[in-house]
Simulated scan of single mutants.
Amino acid sequence: MSHFIHTSSKSIRDIALSSDGEYMACASQESKIKLFDLNSKGTIKTFSTPQGIPSWACAISASKNDFYMGVQNGKTFIYDVRGGDSPASEHATTGDLSPVINLAIIPKIPTDFPFGGFIVCKLTSVYIFEFTSTAGETKETKLVLDGPFVFMTYNQTSNRLLISSRNNATNKTAKYYFGKIMKVDGVPIFDYDVSFNGSSVTPVMTRCALIPTADNTLIAGYQHDAKVLNIYDTERKAKLQCLPVTEVILDTCAISYKDAIFMGALSEQKCRIYRINSSQYKF
Results as ranks from 00 to 15, higher is better:
I5W: 01
S9N: 13
K10F: 04
D14M: 08
D20M: 08
A27H: 02
S28T: 11
Q29Y: 13
D37P: 03
T43S: 09
F47H: 04
P50G: 11
P54F: 01
A57H: 03
F67A: 10
V71K: 14
T76S: 08
Y79N: 06
G83N: 11
S86E: 12
E90S: 13
E90R: 08
T94L: 01
G95C: 12
I106T: 11
P110R: 14
P110G: 05
F115D: 06
F118Y: 07
I119H: 02
Y127G: 03
F131V: 08
G136H: 01
L145M: 04
L145Y: 01
D146N: 03
S165V: 09
A169R: 14
T170L: 12
K172E: 15
K180A: 14
K183P: 11
I189V: 15
D193C: 10
D193Q: 09
V194G: 02
S195V: 12
S199T: 06
S199Q: 02
M205W: 00
L210T: 00
L210E: 11
A214S: 14
D215T: 12
H224R: 02
N230L: 11
T234V: 10
V248P: 05
L250Y: 06
A260Y: 00
G264N: 14
L266V: 12
I273N: 09
S278V: 12
Q280E: 10
